[in-house]
Every structure is written in structure tokens, then in C-alpha cells.
Design a protein around this nucleic acid. Structure first.
Ligand SMILES: [Mn+2]
Ligand SMILES: [Mn+2]
Ligand SMILES: [Zn+2]
Ligand SMILES: [Zn+2]
Lengths: 144, 144
DNA sequence: TATAATATTAGTAACGATTATCATTATGGT
DNA sequence: ACCATAATGATAATCGTTACTAATATTATA
């Protein structure tokens, strides 16, 4: 998670973008949660600080921050996108019932990345590892 | 890939669905390709056999076949869903430039599944492993 | 500091993939 | 054949996301 404002600005500048208060606000909001929120959730939070901000700006900003490598976009079957300020490679668990997304302190062994590179003629740059199941609240056999 | 018609019918019946010619046609089309197509591609193919079929039926059918475990739905950042008749757990490589999706003959080590189960209180049922990069056609350094 | 060039924004309209609705048709069981 | 129910085709509606545009802010230049 990149929190240094100079570094944030630098990363945006590389791609030809400026650091505006809207962009910083979006990133701060995303960095303040562990919940992998969607664009609308971020919009509602940013509005508290910048009431006249528009949802279009949120989407535009999320795209730009992603391009600058300051966040990641996650999306799941037939649903909307979720965003994650943690740009380190890490796995997720997704509840197939309620949509809750948690981090998993787990990364793909380097060996597997190498194996993948060898098995294809694609030039691999990135990967995603996700587990699906039921969270404690949605698990029927649990008395939680 | 489940090709036996009795088995297809059985799997649908378990979920309370019948095997209709539209449903069989959709599954056959999907099973005939390795390209992980989207709903519209499937629609165009099915139309050749059943000209009056509607796109709504394609979507409805894909949902039902998925529920019956006869196909998988894949989707990627801010894009439409793609479908895969191979329901075995296997990894994919996705070209971030042109969208091409290839299979990777690679599966997640069981050890990692166990590790994931231990690291969370979710009840894990499934997972997805994907690599992102550039296919040979989109790779600038390649003279292909 | 004025001025010009450019980037960003808010507001809103448009888009497009997916879902829902509903009248009609097909299917399966008696 | 009759009935109950499931599935279809046609079409309308939904909704997340993008595109457009005029106004505003920022940066570069003189
Ligand atoms: Mn995360
Ligand atoms: Mn596949
Ligand atoms: Zn849940
Ligand atoms: Zn490509």
C-alpha cells in the first residue's frame, strides 16, 4: 500500500496524470478499509469530504489509479467490480452467498509462476488466485 | 467435459430442470470449442441450428447449465462473461491486450488448498487460478 | 503577473451486457 | 386427451459503467 504522497504523485505523473484532491480522496478511502469495496461505496465515502464529487469521477479516478499501479480491480461472475489498495500479490476468499471478500495471507509459489511461463507462449506479467466458499455467517453447519 | 446425454439430463434433473433441445445445443456449441466464448458468440452458433432462439434463452440456459455443474463462468475486469465447458479445475492465461483466453495444463497443488483452508474461517469449495500477460500476437518483442 | 495551453471536473446522457416479464408453446404425468 | 407445470421467444427494463460537454482548475510560458 503506497501512502507517501510524493510517491503517489510520481506514479501518476509517469502516466501523464496529476494528483488532484479527488484522486487522493479516492485512494485514501480505499486505503482506509480492508473490505474490497465497489465504486458506489467509495463514492458515498468520498462525498462526505467532497460533497459535489460525481460518480463519473470516481470511476475515472479508479481507472487512472489502477493504471498507475496504486490499486487493483477485482471482479467476479456477473457482478460489479471491487477495488483493493493492496497491490501486493495476495489471494482472496470470496463468499459465494453474501459476496464478502477477505484477504488470504498466501501467495503463489514462484515455482508455479515459472511452470506457467513454460507451459504457454504468452508473456506472463501477473496472476490472480482466488478461493470460493461460504463465510462463517453463511455457512449452514456453523452455529455462528 | 460431460458429453453423455443421460448424464447431462441427470444433472439437470437434480436441480429440477429438463433437458431441452436449446439447452443441449448451447452445451454442444460450448463443448465444440476451446476458445472460452461469450454469450453472444454462443448465440450466433446456436442460431444456425435453432434460428428462432433468443439471446435471453442463451443467458438463461448458461445460468442453468452452470448451476448444474456442466460449465464454468469466467469473467475479467470490466468485461463480459466467458464460458468454459471444461469443469475440471484448470488454470487460464488471459491476454490483457486482445482478450484471448487459453487453458494452462496446470492445477493448484493440493497443499495450497489445505493451506488456504487453514488460513481462513471460510468453508472453501472452489478456486480459480489465472495468469495475465500478452499472447504471441500481442507481444511487441516477438516477431510473430 | 498576465496569458495561453492543457488537464480535470461535475453533471448528465448514452451504452451495453444481463435480467425480468409475460403471453405462448412444449413437455410430462395421470 | 387433459391438466399442471416448465420452457421459450420477444421484448422491456435494469444497472454498472463510459462517453460527452461546458465549466473550472492547473501548469507552462512570456
Ligand atoms: Mn485484498
Ligand atoms: Mn478453460
Ligand atoms: Zn457470506
Ligand atoms: Zn493478445
Amino acid at each position: 500500500m503506497i501512502t507517501d504522497q510524493e510517491e503517489i504523485s510520481r506514479r501518476l505523473n509517469i502516466k501523464g496524470y496529476r494528483l488532484t484532491k479527488q484522486r487522493l480522496a479516492v485512494l485514501k478511502v480505499l486505503q482506509s478499509t480492508k473490505s474490497h469495496p465497489d465504486a458506489n461505496w467509495i463514492y458515498e465515502k468520498v462525498r462526505k469530504e467532497i460533497p459535489q464529487v460525481s460518480l463519473g469521477t470516481i470511476y475515472r479516478t479508479l481507472g487512472i489509479l489502477k493504471e498507475a499501479g496504486l490499486l487493483r480491480e477485482l471482479n467476479y461472475a456477473s457482478s460489479l467490480s471491487h477495488y483493493d489498495a493492496n497491490t501486493e500479490n495476495h489471494a482472496h476468499v470470496v463468499c459465494t452467498n453474501c459476496g464478502r471478500i477477505d484477504d488470504l495471507p498466501l501467495s503463489l509459489p514462484h515455482k508455479l509462476e515459472v511452470q506457467a511461463s513454460k507451459a504457454t507462449d504468452f508473456l506472463i506479467a501477473d496472476h490472480r488466485l482466488e478461493f470460493y466458499g461460504l463465510c462463517p455467517h453463511c455457512c449452514p453447519s456453523s452455529a455462528d
